[in-house]
Nucleic acid binder design. Structure first.
Lengths: 226, 226
DNA sequence: CGGCATCCGGGAAGATACTG
DNA sequence: CAGTATCTTCCCGGATGCCG
């Protein structure tokens, strides 16, 4: 008879950051939130986007988030009748944590940008890394197609808005693997190479893509002491 | 002999946030960083400021941070000859993570602000929560005494600087328990009550303290769905 | 098929005792 | 004081199975 939670392992610390760790500090927790940042997702989609997470842990995280008021379980109207998980407004506000954490960690000398990446991740990184000054004079819609998932980004007025939707609505459309997109934007791998490798294809003017790509640069690496 | 222990549990995810979790996502890790944010500390000080952490885990976190370039072990010159742990510049940059996480978590309906808190925590929270508009027209030095540790904060030009140093250099001085200070600033507990309870004493004009206290307010709580 | 319970092995964290 | 050694406990991850 395992008592449900004899020792919930809290930090017993009034510091807000400590409480934050109790809310989203468990393994995989922030990454589950990340995958929900661009709108509701289904259980199996989350599993697919988080290679390595076990169904067990995903169930547990989703349940904890619901109990804590970070997400709600919703059932779509028939005939879909599919259950999805959707962040609450407060849940969406956690994006800033992802952004600051990601921006800081991008300076790590150990960061390996060639690992696999999810579509949501790379798009969130655009919101994180965009050069708002450069984006001030731009008005561009970019469509993205990652398998079944489609998104549209709108760069205007020094900001970028991203939402799920018909990728065809973009001035340019990028289709393929999120890792290929990362290589194109952050790794400066030529589009032709990526197309040849079957990783990414561009529809639309190259100049528009080049301008879009210029918006995003990685921060300088921190140097190791000693 | 400590085995290298190059984190066997990675996320295999190129996302910066995922890498950030590999760097500072382990249990207690961010809280150890927090305690180092206002300058070097010794092993036993860290243990005292993080009630609940075991010496074993603290040793491990410090070793990992050193290997990752977030801190350096330094030995003070004789006759002190004491070993201290000091963040690198990149390590200090992690403060923004603590701030964003803390600010977000302060909106949690489950946040219990009456738990114990360390001196560094409450001072960092001032950097996090300060109303920069109100601070624009202020020029005030506040000294803090928590047991052996002394700090001075300088509010000016819409910002607050905090450093270890002689608390007596402040226009006002607050001495006592960090939790008492939190109650005074965030809980609006009257100073007289706190003084009567032996938790906090103020030296200097009350009006200055009142003005200082006005700078800090907690964000509104997020509402629970359903 | 989606979601959740159960069992198990391994490893990290907690607690305590010990050492230079 | 600054850790290390050891033991226990608990969480994570994988596999299986139940149930809608």
């Amino acid at each position: 008879m395992t008592s449900p939670r004899s020792t919930p392992k809290r930090y017993d610390d009034a510091c807000g950051a400590a409480h934050g760790l109790e809310l989203v500090g468990d393994r995989w927790a922030l990454l589950v939130l990340r995958e929900l940042m661009l709108g509701p997702r289904r259980f199996s989609q989350l599993r697919a986007d988080l290679p390595g997470i076990s169904a067990n842990v995903l169930t547990q995280r989703l349940g904890e988030f619901e109990a804590r008021g970070l997400l709600v379980k919703r059932k779509l109207a028939p005939p879909a009748s599919v259950q999805v998980y959707e962040l609450t407004p407060w849940g969406y506000e956690a994006e800033e944590i992802l952004q600051v954490l990601g921006r800081w960690a991008a300076r790590s000398p150990m960061h390996d940008a060639t690992l696999p990446i999810s579509g949501v991740s790379i798009l969130i990184s655009f919101r994180t890394m965009i050069d708002r000054t450069l984006a001030r004079d731009m008005d561009l819609r970019v469509g993205f197609r990652f398998g079944e998932d489609e998104y549209v980004a709108h760069v205007a007025d020094g900001a970028i808005e991203i939402a799920r939707g018909d990728a065809g609505g973009g001035d340019i459309v990028l289709a393929g693997d999120p890792a290929g997109l990362a290589a194109a934007i952050y790794g400066d791998v030529p589009l032709d190479d990526l197309a040849a490798a079957g990783l990414l294809t561009l529809s639309g003017p190259r100049e528009a893509f080049a301008a879009f790509s210029e918006l995003f640069t990685l921060p300088p690496k921190a140097s190791m002491p000693g």
